[in-house]
Structure formats: structure tokens, C-alpha cells
Amino acid sequence: MATVEVTTDNFNDVISKPGTVLIDFWAAWCGPCRMFAPIFEKASEEHPDMTFGKVDTEAQVELAQTFNISSIPTLMIVRDGVVLYAQPGALPEPQLAGLINKVQELDMDEVRAAIAAKEGQA
């Protein structure tokens, strides 16, 4: 599956899809973003069961500000509506593949229980 352009108009629709959603916050002028783009695109082709989206931080300033994106590229991974990963930095292909595998192996019932327990302590 090719990557989808994510905007303020379609962000909620993209992020609320069931399963795993990877979002790449990037900009055309960013060298590391250009290095990461083919790695991200290849991963999208290898995982057609997942949604891969790209947010152009220059065109979608409001989205970048909402998520406090101060360094790009930033990768965000959401599974079943839960943000599991949000870190800046261009990942090499093996590291991205490993991260995707770890996210897929998570027991989301355990993750939600841990979040609920943490929120109960607050």
C-alpha cells in the first residue's frame, strides 16, 4: 500500500483506522526526511495490512504544533487508537522493521490495562 497524505482534514479518519498506523512527520527541505522517505515507503509496501501516512509539517503546521513536533523526521505509531511510539529521527531499515514487529507483537489488552492502571494512579 502506498503512503497516504495526512492533513488536518483527514487526520482523525486515518488515525482511527483499526490496526496499526504509522505517521511520518516530514518536510521537503529536511535531508534526514529525504533519507528516511524510501525506507518508510518500502515498509508500506511490505506491510499492506497497515496504514502509512505522511504529514508535511510545512503544509500542516497545525498538526505539527498539536503533536509538539519540534524535530523531523518524527515517526508516530498508533495501534487500535493508542499511541505506542512517537520519536524523532530517521530510522535505518532494520530498526524500522524491528519496531514494526514489536508493535505487532504487543498484546493491546495488556497495553490498555496498563494505561488504565496508570491513569487510576494519577
Score class of each variant (00 low, 15 high):
G89R: 09
V78N: 12
L84Q: 03
A28G: 12
A37M: 09
L91E: 09
N12P: 11
F11H: 12
A28W: 00
T7N: 06
G81W: 07
G81S: 08
T74Y: 00
T7S: 14
E58L: 04
V55I: 14
E41D: 15
A59I: 00
A43F: 02
S70N: 11
G53S: 03
V83R: 13
Q65Y: 06
D9V: 13
V82E: 14
G31H: 05
L96K: 07
G98D: 11
W26P: 10
I77Q: 03
W26K: 06
Q95L: 08
E62H: 12
P48T: 09
K17V: 03
D49G: 07
E5I: 10
E93H: 12
G19H: 07
F67E: 05
C33W: 01
D9C: 01
F40M: 07
D49M: 04
P38N: 05
I23F: 02
E5N: 15
R34E: 02
I100D: 05
F11D: 09
L96M: 08
V6P: 09
K17E: 15
I39S: 04
I100N: 08
I69L: 09
V14W: 04
Q95M: 13
P92K: 03
V103G: 10
P88D: 12
I77L: 04
A97Y: 03
T57H: 00
K54T: 00
I23G: 02
P94T: 10
K102S: 15
H47F: 10
I69Y: 07
A27C: 09
C30R: 01
N12E: 15
I77F: 05
V82W: 01
M76A: 15
T20K: 04
L63H: 11
E41H: 03
G53P: 05
T20W: 01
D56Q: 03
L91C: 09
H47I: 04
L22R: 06
